[in-house]
Design a protein around this nucleic acid. Structure first.
Lengths: 337, 337
DNA sequence: TTGTATGCGTTATCAT
DNA sequence: ATGATAACGCATACAA
């Protein structure tokens, strides 16, 4: 049987009220000797308060639900760490959920989190959503959505990445380097971030008076397999001298396929990715990419969430995060012919 | 105010005892119509039971603490996912803690987990430990330690990887390919797994009558930087034709340094890593490595933990997991001269 | 300066 | 077939 506040009270010869006050630092009007005695006994008994019981009365669990598609997606692993770091700094714990981009699983997890009385939820929603379904789900705790749009009632904060500008900058970089015929290996277009990146791509072309060709855009999954296959199976148009990829995994897959075909990077084809995951600086040539500060995204999301939770004042916030081009070795000026 | 069991009882015109029974499926002797009515009202009111309150009486939180050094370490990101998957399958939630390999932080987290009344803890301990300190800490919930040794009282299960054999197999592979002078870029030797890998390396040499040279072993951190620097700054002995690396990150760093020096892999030098992290099959040449099934390790650890928690019978288990050599492109037969 | 009493939302025992 | 009630461990308003 674990030792409880009652035991401490009995052993110290005081009431549990007194012990409770001492534990919670509300001991301003309790005698010094009593405080010391009680603290000694707490120490001796190796007593730790039962936070579950405390939560019953305070209505706060000091716990946050973190819901993401998959930690193994390198973008999310850093994000998760950022989230954990703030949570810890602020005295919160993180309940950890992977949805595999499955809205059903996501909703199931969220319900479980609510049953467990989390104080708030940080949610990177599944890709494919169902607005009319979600709008009928009223989540009773504050939610901050990150990176992906969600439609649940009760969403009070948003952290978004400026994908449009990120893509725009990447493609502009290629154009400034002399590339004109630029492929785009895009991820699934049913998520907003993909659409934004595509728009950035288009706009950069337009702003430089380069015509947009639909058949230069190939859509697939955000995996290295997609990148590999799409370069392996179809030889790109001879005039293509650069490829902009929806994310780094696609880019790396594409690079590997091109290497196998003895197409040199960047001399023959320049490649740009998106995300700047850990591996991108380690491949050869090191990948030019658009850096998403995923650690900071996680950090800021949970920070915003806690701020909202702790002072219901400034709810309904939105913060946009810049994505920054990192030029490395997979891009170069196009050789004039 | 959230709707409680009391509200459901009132609205259904029954007692809370009845509602409770229905919620928990203990409704064998409750009337069909009552059950249906209550269930309807629960639905209507969108009621979810308060698990915190339930935990007060059941003494179970259905929550497990997962303590690891850092999710960003690719070995742990897969492990975490395996852990989460079983937890979810078995109806548990995961409280997620990163210790940064800091024993103090680890102990702080564990105390917090205990205060939060977790039913058990899965612990990948910090590298540097303090046996005499730990042995005085009696953790009141079941612990399963994974991958790394810990000395807390209350550790009831262990999942370990056979690092010795993994290293032995890797080095034997190199020897069978004709390599004799094999460097070892080891991680910090104050953790058991590093020692085991070193022993595997030594034994493989010995079993093949190859002398062990201490200066062929370089010790550093388990990072790509260490691999890179140690190959960048010192040119390996001409006779060295193969390098065994303590993990894949070291191997990839080393590969990059060698490439910069125009040393060909595997033609000039063969390289073997350890772990088989995601990136290893994506670099060029694809890395030959010893695969640690990190997802399975996480999965099995938490599975064992739950088994121990749910039936205190077969405590004190130990399970050893094999590490398997994956031959890819970074190793080849040594050219005879 | 300290203690008494109530309640948080639920489960479980024992009645009815 | 259903209900009354104690108990879980703690915080807090109020009393003393």
């Amino acid at each position: 049987m674990a030792v409880t506040i009652k035991d401490i009270a009995r052993l110290s010869g005081v009431s549990i009220a007194t012990v409770s006050k001492i534990i919670n630092g509300k001991d301003s009007d309790i005698g010094k000797p009593t405080i010391e005695r009680v603290k000694r006994i707490i120490e001796e008994q190796n007593y730790t308060p039962n936070i579950v019981a405390r939560s019953m009365v305070t209505k706060k669990t000091k716990t946050i639900g973190l819901v993401i598609p998959d930690v193994r997606n390198p973008f999310f692993t850093d994000l998760v760490r950022g989230a954990e770091d703030v949570a810890n700094e602020r005295g919160y714990s993180l309940l950890f959920c992977n949805t595999d981009d499955d809205l059903k699983k996501e909703i199931k997890y969220i319900n479980n989190l609510i049953e467990k009385q989390v104080d708030g939820i940080a949610l990177a929603g599944a890709a494919v959503r169902d607005q009319s379904l979600e709008e009928n789900i009223d989540i009773k705790v504050p939610i901050v959505s990150l990176d992906r749009n969600v439609y649940f009632k009760g969403v009070e904060g948003k952290i978004e990445v400026d994908n449009f500008t990120g893509a725009y900058d990447a493609v502009t970089h290629l154009i400034k380097s002399g590339h004109k015929r630029i492929m785009f290996l895009s991820g699934q277009l049913n998520i907003k971030l993909s659409k934004d990146r595509l728009e950035g791509y288009k706009r950069a072309l337009a702003d430089n008076n380069i015509e947009y060709y639909e058949n230069l855009v190939v859509v697939g999954k955000y995996t290295s397999e997609f990148g590999y296959e799409s370069m392996k199976n179809t030889t790109p148009d001879k005039a293509v001298t650069a490829i902009f990829c929806g994310n780094d995994l696609i880019a790396i897959g594409a690079m590997n396929a091109l290497k196998e075909k003895n197409i040199r990077i960047p001399e023959d084809i320049s490649i740009v990715g998106f995300d700047d995951i850990y591996i991108s600086s380690l491949v050869t040539p090191a990948l030019t990419t658009v850096r998403q500060p995923s650690y900071e995204i996680g950090y800021q999301a949970v920070e915003m969430l806690i701020d909202i939770m702790e002072s219901k004042k400034e709810a309904s916030q939105k913060r946009e995060i810049k994505a920054e081009l990192k030029v490395r070795e997979s891009t170069c000026k196009r050789r004039s012919e």
